[in-house]
Amino acid sequence: MTDWHPEVERTARGIRLRVFEHVLRNGEGYLSQALSSAEIFALLYGPVLTLGPVDGPTLPAPFEGVPGTDNDRYRSGGRFNGAPAPDRDRFIFSPAHYALVLYAALIEVGRLDEEALLDFNVDGSTLEMIGAEHSPGVETTTGSLAQALSQAAGIAMGRRMKGETGATWVMMSDGEFEEGQTWEALSFASYQGLDRLKVVVDANAQQCDGRIESVANIEPLADRITAFGCEARDVDGHDLDALHEAMTADSDRPVVVIARTNPTQGVPIFEDKAPLLHTLRFSSDDEKARYEAAYRQMAEAH
């Protein structure tokens, strides 16, 4: 087996750069999510997930309407993760506010045409700011947070009933552990013994109002998850080897990998904005110039 490190490191850097570039071009955007979760997405779309090739063109079609009996033109954004197959994995994306990171990751691994990102948040495009299931890489509609895990549990259960061997993966954000549905879902998954259900959480300790500890308390997260009958693995989310090991080691229980991450990883000047890191906005031209300099430095190192 070839060493996955160089490619995963390149993908992670590429995700940060691409999102950073996009935020600079737009004057604002979801940067902290990319900085915290770049390694998670790079590993998922690298050595962790077993996916088929993109099912169709890598350039998405314009918005074709919502799902419904009368709409035969509708296509799921899940096609960018490849057609489902019994022995392949499924990827269910939970925090729809991370859509920009997901699109960037898909581009970095060659699943999405990089031109598509020019249509991000443009009227009539499927690359919506908060993605829905027509958006590239998105199979379920989860902008109302914490609904993906239950759906993934249903998918994992259905796949088990059909004798499929592939895993069903969910990428979550830590704020979703404030919703009761998450705990219902973990309770259900452990009670039903869904050992092919895997979760990775970007635990960047940030949510819309600021630092999680200033909004609510979800800790001790690993202990809580363990108490619900699942296996929690608490690791440094920027340590590729530790994260890879946590995501791939076998278990006879549903696994939740808590990836402890830094929302300013790679862009230290962003720390000045703490605790409001949910979106980056520039307060002056001078400030924007400093971020542009930081971007050029990152790009040169890439």
Binding site: S150, G154, R159, M161, Q181, E184, S187, F188
Partner: peptide
């Protein structure tokens, strides 16, 4: 038969996932 327990929010999601798998 799937016992979802007294947890209707999760039950809706589980039903959705099962329906997506052809059930």
């Amino acid at each position: 038969f799937i016992s979802a327990g007294m947890a209707e929010q999760n039950m809706m999601g589980v039903a959705a996932g099962l329906a997506r798998e052809g059930f």
